[in-house]
Simulated scan of single mutants.
Amino acid sequence: MDLQGYLRSKPEAEDGYPFGPDAQVFKVQGKLFALVFQRSGCECVNLKCDPHQAPGLRDLFAAVSPGYHMNKRHWNTVRNDDSIPPGELQRMIDHSYALVVRGLPRAKRLGLEARHGRDQIYRGAL
């Protein structure tokens, strides 16, 4: 799966390297929803996750672990090693993005929803 391409396709997603060349950060409205990095020779992504869902995903997929250098209750690290079906990885990304959008101040959230439509923002996410 083209991880960076899918992350960039999220409405108003912006990426950059504020922590240096080894960690690509993806944000919406200035808030982090994904962090891509290499670990042990494998591409990984930190994704926000509902704390009630995170343990289940970790149990279900060997490629999902508590968030590396993140709050382990709210973030998962996912190894992009093709062991997770692409549709499931996309759902995890959609979920992370939607959680971050839901946490935005009301005016920013409503503006984003008005510009792109609620279906596009929350597609398959929650």
Results as ranks from 00 to 15, higher is better:
M1F: 08
M1C: 07
D2I: 02
L3K: 01
Q4S: 09
Y6I: 06
L7C: 01
L7T: 00
S9L: 05
S9A: 13
P11W: 13
P11D: 11
P11V: 11
E14P: 06
E14C: 02
D15G: 12
G16D: 13
D22Y: 01
D22N: 10
V25P: 02
F26N: 02
F26G: 03
V28C: 04
Q29L: 08
K31M: 08
K31F: 07
F33I: 10
A34G: 04
V36P: 00
V36L: 01
F37W: 00
F37S: 05
Q38L: 12
R39W: 09
R39D: 07
S40P: 01
S40T: 09
C42Q: 13
E43N: 02
C44D: 03
C44T: 03
V45T: 04
V45Q: 04
V45C: 00
N46M: 04
K48T: 06
C49T: 10
C49K: 06
D50P: 06
P51E: 15
Q53Y: 15
A54G: 10
P55R: 13
G56D: 13
G56R: 13
L57W: 15
L57Y: 14
L57T: 11
R58D: 05
R58M: 15
R58L: 05
D59I: 06
D59Y: 03
D59N: 12
L60D: 13
F61Q: 08
A62I: 10
A63I: 03
A63K: 05
A63D: 02
S65V: 14
P66R: 10
P66Q: 07
P66C: 03
Y68C: 01
H69G: 04
M70W: 01
M70G: 07
N71R: 10
K72A: 10
R73P: 02
H74W: 14
W75T: 05
N76P: 00
V78T: 03
V78H: 01
R79G: 00
N80A: 15
N80P: 00
D81S: 06
D82S: 14
S83V: 12
S83C: 10
I84K: 12
P85K: 12
P86C: 09
P86D: 15
P86A: 14
E88S: 11
L89A: 01
L89I: 07
Q90Y: 11
Q90S: 15
Q90K: 15
Q90I: 14
M92N: 08
I93F: 02
D94R: 15
D94W: 01
Y97H: 04
Y97V: 08
A98L: 08
A98F: 05
L99E: 12
L99H: 03
V100D: 10
V101R: 09
R102D: 12
R102N: 13
L104W: 02
P105G: 09
R106D: 09
A107T: 11
A107H: 08
K108Y: 02
L110D: 15
L110G: 00
G111C: 03
A114E: 12
R115I: 05
G117C: 09
G117V: 12
Q120P: 00
G124S: 10
L126Q: 15
L126S: 14
